[in-house]
Design a binder for these strands. Structure first.
Length: 260
DNA sequence: ATGGCCAATTTGATTGGA
């Protein structure tokens, strides 16, 4: 089963690039972030025509997440538990039944948190506390599960071309990275690092300042696997060349292949 | 962080992103 996470940066602005990518790569599941669309505005038909079931959790203007799947999606839950007052659409989960086993898919768009410190940064850390709690429940279920998406976290200095430039940024501050490690250390496998070591691997390049041309990137899109899911891991790759395409998102897809 | 960006809505300007 091939599963990709992809911050699409506006599904309506990206519909041509997205459908071309779906046809070319044919993921079994695509977890999309930043759809920047309400549920009714989602370009459902063009994606359904390619054989995908679609579940969205959108909001007006920004944020928003969606799951596309060739296989049926079951038990869909929208919104990260833990704060009924939180109106931001950053979490959707569902179960997909593979040939060999079912997998719980959690798709997340973690808050950016800038400027830090400040209320937006407080929201980021509070959101990560809630993610930690949800992660514990997921682990206790002992089913193969993953939490994937745009974490807005640069885990280590080697995950940025210019780590010094990010020192005080909400994506790289010590407290942000510690919150990420606290979740990881519950027992998750970070899929990309389970397969590939060393610097120079990025999933985001800013639109500004020729960042792509200079390979001035950061790695912030991650897939965290429960132990039962990590047992199924066959491969994890970053689809770098997508950033060179026509009217690209500023993120690229990150893939896992699971024996599911 | 920045050599000039990008998407969506609040649209001839602003907000949010990373």
């Amino acid at each position: 089963m091939k599963i990709a996470t992809f911050n699409i940066n506006g599904v309506k602005a990206r519909i041509e690039a997205l459908t071309a990518w779906l046809q070319d790569q044919s993921p079994d599941v695509a977890l999309l972030q930043e759809i920047k669309s309400v549920d009714d505005g989602f370009p459902r038909e063009q994606i359904a025509d390619l054989g995908y079931n679609i579940e969205t959790h959108g909001q007006k203007g920004f944020n928003g997440v969606a799951i596309l799947s060739k296989l049926p999606l079951e038990d869909v839950v929208r919104g990260l538990p833990g704060d009924d007052a939180d109106q931001q659409a950053r979490w959707i989960e569902a179960t997909v039944v593979g040939e060999h086993t079912a997998v719980r898919l959690c798709n997340l768009y973690l808050p950016n948190g800038n400027p830090a410190p400040g209320p937006k940064f407080d929201y980021k850390l509070a959101w990560m506390d809630r993610l930690h709690d949800r992660a514990q429940v997921l682990l206790a279920s002992e089913m193969p599960a993953l939490m994937a998406g745009d974490y807005n976290i640069i885990p280590q200095a080697e995950d940025a071309a210019r780590p010094d430039a990010w020192r005080d940024d909400a994506l790289f501050r010590p407290d942000s990275r510690a919150a990420f490690r606290r979740i990881l250390n519950l027992g998750f496998t970070e899929a990309f690092r389970a397969r590939t070591k060393g610097p120079g691997h990025y999933s985001f390049w800013d639109y500004q300042a020729g960042a792509w041309d200079r390979n001035d990137g950061i790695r912030i899109d991650h897939l965290l696997l429960t132990p039962q899911c990590a047992d199924l891991l066959r491969d994890c790759t970053i689809e770098r060349q997508v950033r060179a395409g026509e009217k690209p998102s500023d993120h690229v897809p990150v893939w896992v292949e699971l024996a599911a």
